[in-house]
Amino acid sequence: MCGIISVIDRLGNSMNGEAIKKALSLMNERGSGEGAGYAVYGAYPDFADYYALHLFYDNLVEPKVAVEELLEKWGKIEHSEEIPTYSKGRMLKKHIPWRYFFKPDTSLFASSESLEEDIIISLITRINTKVNGALVYSSGKNIGVFKASGWPEEVADFYRIQDYEGYLWLAHNRYPTNTSGWWGGAHPFNLLDWSVIHNGEITSYGTNKRYLESFGYKCTMLTDTEVVAYLADLLGRRHELPPEMMVKALAPPFWDEIDEMSGKDRDIYTALRMAYGPAMMNGPFAIVVARPDYIAGFTDRIKLRPMVAAESGDRLYISSEEAAIRTMEPNLENIWMPDAGEPVIGRLRR
């Protein structure tokens, strides 16, 4: 059991982290005080052209030297600083969060379709698998993930999440079973433009993971959530599927439903299932994936985890609980419970 909440302002207007902190804290029942996190899009307007790499360091000696050597070898660090934190009470600073604003040097790499992004992915894979005591957990442009072990309000206060502003937020309250207490195991999970919050357990993990590995991804986070981000990256970015069709590949209609469809839809959905069968996610889940231009929320095909969506003006909310949304915005125009597997998509209009 976990609690998730997400909001997008479809005009791109900024919100600070105060409201979402309150909303997530309201769902403390769904967590265990061992992990919470926030992702904000539009966090770093001054460095919008640089990849914002957030790392957890175990110390500032060997891992930091190794990482910086690697980054300087393959590109330019425009700015480097410790992420400000404010320890008090129960929150122990088990890792030192650090951020770099980084640009890779594309002239150093063999050509590919999406050169910069592929370089960043290969650097992240190298750091996370080869450098002891360093973990990259956030890497998007103008995006910041802030997470740790603790209750939602403790983690928020640790980073002073209310001081950050952005037009799109994700937040997650964790009840871990797999990797308890590990900061890297907290959500949101991020890779480049993609961020994911996830309530559930992916029973198809073994299939999904092996499928992704055959496309060069390496799963290093010990959690099933990272496959969601990689699947989204593969289908949404590399294979260029539009978000609603990507969701339909990840949580597809049943064959009985496909058989009933009209000719054209039947062909499309049959093709999606045939090509992306190993990408299909099974097991109970409610997930929100975000990119700079949209959020997409969806559940597993028989909706074994809750998901509620609501609208107020230009803002679209997706959450585990209606009460959490109402904490953020008491005056909702529209609130509904999406069907199993039906995507809820909020697109940026600007």
């Binding site: 357990e201 029973t203 198809s204 993990y205 073994g206 299939t207 993971k209 092996r210 499928y211 299932r273 069968g277 190993p278 299909m280 996610m281 099974n282 097991g283 109970p284 095909r301 028989i302």
Partner: peptide, 16 residues
């Protein structure tokens, strides 16, 4: 029993 409702998600799922 394994929480899987489609054969595709069993195939190659050696974690199970």
């Amino acid at each position: 029993a394994a929480g899987i409702n489609s054969l595709e998600s069993l195939r190659g799922n050696r974690d199970r």
